[in-house]
Design a protein around this nucleic acid. Structure first.
Lengths: 126, 126
DNA sequence: CTAACTGCAAACGTTTTGCAACTTT
DNA sequence: AAAGTTGCAAAACGTTTGCAGTTAG
């Protein structure tokens, strides 16, 4: 899987891939550090951050911004949207049939779209 | 304007309000620190951050998240969306007639919507 | 007089970086 | 040997906080 995307499969990268790419996940870098550390390999924080960036660059993960707090890495790289609950720090998918974005605005001269990010922030019901 | 919203108008708050609330702006906290410092008053970083949060809480500004880098404060508090160009660090409005979000997904049990954030990230045209 | 606000500097949490050591090839 | 990868600790970044002093009503 890594080789297919041109990512040299070192043992650390494989550990991270096993944790993230086998099932749908929404993990922060720190969660990956914890999870990978919990079993087999110790992977350094720096390497986790490098690897996640590398996976994003090679289309294995999608980066999801929710604010300044943290970044999520989503193993589902197809276009879809998210709920974010700052209370619990949990990110969840929005079913694609439930919302859609209609229309594509004229882009500023000399630019193209890098990413479309729709995040619905949640709060406890009043 | 401040009093209307129940915000006690101290001199620092007035300085910041003059900078942000008179015309449409998309400023980061650091830009506000610089701009306010450039003229009359020296307002401390802490006070700028406190004041911006206060203005958001009282509906004078809208907070726009674009990632981990920084937060923007938008003097247009009505529902609308944004382009973000990481290259230039500039945030711009998307005309409301150009995109819309259709449908409102079922929310997770016990939650309601705090904010709907649609940000289109730009990159230089290839 | 009191409650609220300010400013400094120190703390924070997440992410990046410099660089020497270690794998690969 | 060259190219790429790793890990540590330190730095960077934007933001928040503790607290003593100040201001406003």
């Amino acid at each position: 899987m890594l080789r297919e995307r041109g990512v040299a499969p070192t043992s650390q990268r494989v550990s991270i891939a096993l944790e993230m790419l086998l099932e749908p996940t929404h993990l922060t870098a720190e969660e990956v550090v914890r999870r990978v550390g919990r079993q087999d390999a110790h992977v350094s924080r720096a390497t986790v951050y490098n690897t996640l960036r590398c996976f994003v660059d090679h289309g294995l993960l999608r980066l999801v911004n929710v604010g300044t707090e943290r970044v999520f890495y989503d193993s589902n790289t197809s276009a879809h949207h998210h709920f974010y609950d700052p209370q619990s720090g949990r990110l969840t998918d929005i079913d694609d049939s439930e919302v859609s974005i209609v229309g594509m605005p004229r882009l500023p001269e000399g630019h193209e779209v890098e990413a479309v990010e729709l995040v619905i922030r949640l709060k406890p019901a009043s």
